[in-house]
Computed example of a mutant assay.
Amino acid sequence: MRLLHTMLRVNNLDESLKFYCDQLGMKLLRKHDFPGGEFTLAFVGYGDEKDNAVIELTWNWGTSKYEIGTAYGHVALGVDDIYQTCADLKQKGVNVVREPGPMKHGTTPIAFIEDPNGYKIELIQQK
């Protein structure tokens, strides 16, 4: 077994693709409209699906707002230089909701950003 993807429902697919692809540097791996079901699936990631876990962005046509809920935590991304990454993302208009620094009760530098839908994404400094 291996992890294939994580699915996130999005309010605006174009806005979400801009965030994940243009701002975070992921690639749009595939996208398919399902007119009968009135939804679109777009898969984004840093590498081919056969070798990497990816994110599935699901846009349900006619739906423009979701409740994230209290059970959702975050998606985590490893970065080489968390301070420079956050500075670069801010320049691209990304909302940094927790500035980089050591995690509470630990030493690993982390930060949190937010996607256009309000989903939190943790950035973790890789050693």
Rank of each mutant, 00 (worst) to 15 (best):
K120A: 14
E122D: 07
L3H: 10
M1T: 08
Y119D: 04
N95C: 07
Q23G: 00
L41E: 15
V75S: 09
M1W: 06
P102T: 03
D115F: 07
Y72V: 02
C21I: 12
M1F: 12
E15T: 11
E99H: 05
N52P: 08
N12M: 02
I82D: 09
T6K: 06
K90C: 04
T58G: 08
V97N: 08
N60C: 07
A76S: 12
E15H: 10
K104L: 13
M1D: 03
R2I: 09
G73I: 06
D115K: 03
E56G: 15
Y46L: 11
I124T: 13
V10D: 03
G69V: 07
P116L: 10
V10F: 06
K31Y: 07
K31L: 05
A53W: 07
K92V: 05
L77H: 08
G37A: 13
T108Q: 15
S64R: 09
E67G: 06
M26R: 08
N12T: 05
V96H: 08
S64D: 13
N60D: 12
L123W: 00
V75W: 03
N12K: 09
T58V: 05
E99I: 03
Q84W: 02
L24K: 04
K50C: 04
I68A: 03
L24D: 00
E49V: 03
N95E: 15
E114W: 07
G118Q: 06
K104N: 11
R30K: 15
M7H: 02
M7Q: 15
E114T: 02
L17A: 05
V75E: 00
L29Y: 01
C21W: 11
K120W: 15
V10K: 00
T85I: 06
R98L: 14
A76Y: 00
D115R: 02
K18V: 00
K104C: 03
G37T: 10
E99M: 06
M1G: 13
A71T: 14
G25E: 01
A71P: 00
L24W: 10
D80R: 08
G45A: 07
R2C: 00
D81Q: 04
S64Y: 11
Y20Q: 00
Y119F: 14
V94N: 06
M26Q: 01
E67T: 13
L41P: 02
A53M: 12
I55Y: 02
E99R: 08
G25D: 02
L57M: 09
G118K: 01
G73K: 13
H74Y: 05
D81K: 01
G37W: 11
F112V: 01
A42R: 09
N52E: 12
L24R: 04
K31T: 05
F19R: 04
G47P: 05
Y46D: 03
L123V: 04
G106F: 11
P102K: 15
